[in-house]
């Protein structure tokens, strides 16, 4: 029992850190750059994607034994599209303003390669529970990725965080941060930061290896 929980935890953490879709695999860049102008948008986009990811991976995994390989992609796409439609309705029901802010990117979750990739590479080969745990990890990793962009862009671009003003009324917004180039700049800076972390870690490993 204990062994399986540890494995499940590892599986979950895989998506958040080692195979983070945004910062390691650089997947799903379209929503990452487009909707992260505010933390709320980023968070809701991340959660929507994660929900679609978990639900479709679960269903794909349940159907893995009855899906002939010739039609598997068609089956995956139909399943993913179904859950995207459901999430689309749900967001409209929760808030129209949010729906307008996310725009076409909710429907575009269908073609997000993270989801199809997970379905093909993991869910189709594993039983439902591990598949969903793995999908949840990926979804959480994607949400964290979006959120880390959204937070920086909202703080610099509007001086607020989740709509709460941080610096008072006389804050000078960095307009570029809420424009498309801001997305590229912030993503680039984060990638730079993670590359630097990775490099430092490897240098430390090399040093300890030398000392031993």
């Amino acid at each position: 029992m204990n062994v399986t929980t540890t494995r499940g935890w590892d599986e979950f953490m895989e998506g958040i850190w080692k195979q983070n879709p945004t910062f390691v695999m650089i997947l799903g860049m379209c929503p990452t750059l487009a909707v992260t102008v505010s933390a709320v948008n980023a968070l809701s986009m991340g959660i929507s994607t994660a929900l679609v990811l978990i639900a479709s991976c679960g269903l794909v995994s349940m159907m893995r034994n009855v899906t002939p390989k010739e039609v598997r992609i068609a089956v995956y796409i139909v399943i993913i599209a179904t859950f995207v439609t459901a999430v689309d309705y749900a967001i409209q029901a929760i808030s129209l303003a949010l729906y307008d802010a996310l725009g076409a990117f909710i429907q575009l979750i269908v073609v997000n390669c993270i989801i199809l990739g997970r379905a093909e590479a993991h869910a189709a080969k594993n039983p439902p529970i591990p598949a969903m745990v793995n999908a949840a990890g990926m979804g959480a990793g994607f949400t964290i990725g979006l959120l880390s962009l959204g937070v920086v862009r909202e703080i610099l671009g509007a001086g607020t965080l989740f709509g709460v003003s941080l610096f008072g009324a006389s804050f000078q917004p960095w307009v570029i941060m809420v424009l498309p180039p801001g997305g590229f700049f912030v993503l680039g800076s984060w990638l730079l930061f993670f590359a630097w972390l990775e490099r430092r870690k490897q240098r430390k490993l090399a040093e300890t290896a030398e000392n031993v």
Binding site: Q172, W174, V175, I176, M177, L179, P181
Partner: peptide, 10 residues
Amino acid sequence: AFVQAAFPTA
């Protein structure tokens, strides 16, 4: 170009 896009008013 960066500050032009970031601070167009100033």
